[in-house]
């Protein structure tokens, strides 16, 4: 059963020049789905369109069957979608704890349990909870960004290049954390440059090029596909 469906979506930053051209993809309950493809294929644009930062000129974005295309982001967030942008994904002058509190901004219930959950996923954040997020290293910033997104208790998490700019030692640990988050029942749609690693941990993958979905299959099949290997996985 697909929890999120992008149906024939065309979108771009100006009405004249579209970046996505009739793109279709699906995310099923409990899956990790990777979106890979070259720079400029529209990977980040896709996440922005799903999260209401861009209004598609054509097509639908269905969240459990309801069309959310063009809804303001704060309404989409209320429906259980969380998004971690690739860059500028923390509030630098706020402390770690305040960053997490902001993640729970739209929640009216007691979120201390969720915060404990985030702290047990990323123990280093608990130790440094009163540190300003702007002073952290790249890996820790990424943890704050993901922690902030998890404070909503989302059913779907959109991740834009979580490994970008991280030291290799952090890359595998961030991917481990993503798997742990998925194991708690969160469906995850992830855009990655680091295609091979991303496919290894995900259930299925989509290959994007020129704003279109050119291939989709199980991750293993994509990893073993010769064309995909040559073009996108670096041989």
């Amino acid at each position: 059963m697909s929890i999120l469906k992008v149906d024939n979506v065309t979108a771009g930053y100006t009405p004249e020049s579209s970046i996505l051209h009739g793109l279709t993809l699906e995310l099923n309950e409990g899956e990790i789905v990777s979106i890979i493809g070259p720079n400029g294929a529209g990977k980040s644009t896709l996440l922005k369109a799903i999260f209401g930062l861009l209004k598609p000129t054509e097509g639908q974005i269905l969240l459990r069957g309801e069309n959310i295309a063009g809804m303001p982001p704060f309404k989409i967030a209320k429906k259980g979608l969380s998004y971690v942008p690739q860059v500028d994904n923390i509030f630098p002058s706020l402390t770690i704890q305040e960053n997490l509190e902001m993640g729970a901004f739209i929640r009216d219930d007691d979120y201390s349990g969720t915060m404990e959950g985030v702290f047990s996923l990323f123990p280093v954040l608990k130790e440094r909870r009163n540190t300003r997020a702007g002073t952290l290293s790249g890996g820790q910033r990424q943890m704050v960004a993901m922690g902030r997104a998890l404070m909503l208790n989302p059913s779907i998490l959109l991740l834009d290049e979580p490994s970008a700019g991280l030291a290799p030692i952090f890359v595998s640990s961030i991917f481990e954390k993503i798997k742990e988050i998925n194991a708690t029942g969160v469906s995850i749609l992830i855009v990655e440059q680091n295609a091979k690693e991303a496919l290894k941990m995900s259930h299925r993958g989509y290959v994007l090029a020129m704003g279109r979905n050119v291939m989709d299959d199980d991750s293993d099949a994509l990893l073993n596909n010769e064309d995909v290997g040559k073009l996108y996985l670096g041989g």
Binding site: F51, L53, P73, F74, A77, K78, Y83, P85, D88, N89, I90, F91, P92, S93, L94, E98, E101, M102, G103, F105, I106, R148, L152
Partner: peptide, 17 residues
């Protein structure tokens, strides 16, 4: 705090809800 967050990073504030 939300005001400081918005002043820090308005795009992320929007995304945060």
């Amino acid at each position: 705090k939300a005001m400081r967050a918005t002043s820090d990073n308005p795009d992320l504030a929007l995304v945060t809800g």
